[in-house]
Amino acid sequence: MKEFKILAVIVALVGITYYGIEPYAHSVMHPEVAAADFTFKDVKNVDTTLAGNVENGKALVEANCIACHAIEAAGHPAVMPNADAAASYGVVPPDLSSAGRIYDTNYLANFIFDPVTAMHLEHKYTPDSGKQFPMPSYNWMTPQEIMDVVAYLKSVAPKVSEDKEGHKATFEAACGRCHNMKYAGIEATTPTDNLKNYMGATPPDLSQYIKSRGEHYLHSFINDPQVLLHGTSMPRVGLSEKAQEEVIEYMEEVGDSKKAERESLGLYVMGYMVVFALFAYLWKRKIWEEVH
């Protein structure tokens, strides 16, 4: 009984200290922020209840988008090599093949209407900054036309598999123009020098971000970087909840590739130790019977 009392005192003291330096200290250093909003309800220039017309959207896209954007999935190859594109625009313009799949509908429509407000980058592209976002606003289009474009982009977006390959495709489409992922052999499609110039700093390699930032942080951060890192030049990219989950999945598959092995082996080892402790207890009882 006495031994249990001693154990209880130690567990209590260690528990209080642990609570203080781990969960509590981290909650002070990293206060909770507003929940991620996957409807992007702050941007509402386009009525997204309108049903889009794919045929009309196709014509609009071909007239307005493919001068700069590739859409490999619809047979429109890149206009120039990445290095040249980066030199011309500052950053490689995205291939729009998966845009209809990975971006939230409301975000995508409002992005076309006015990219800078959708990305939450008003602080970077102020009138006196002399900087201009490479893509113009399509606010002269009617909401119906914008929704036609969105409908077309959705119609051409290829489906991807629900596995690492699929997650990789989403990651590359969503993050791959700016971020390296060294541990997966992924290099940003925009050359480093252009990127540094365009973003103000070299965007970090994401190989270990699942560990250094963790899923919880990434969940908020990717949804809207300004919330956790006010003033950052990383845009809000507008991923749908599903696409964002795929991105985070991929970061885990690359950055914590042994997770499954760890968790299954862990149970075996602990099970072994339980059996060990049980036998050790029986042995101890047998030995101590003689001396007590």
Partner: peptide
């Protein structure tokens, strides 16, 4: 024998 049990 007691140590080994506690260690377990």
């Amino acid at each position: 024998s007691k140590d080994v049990f506690v260690m377990g």
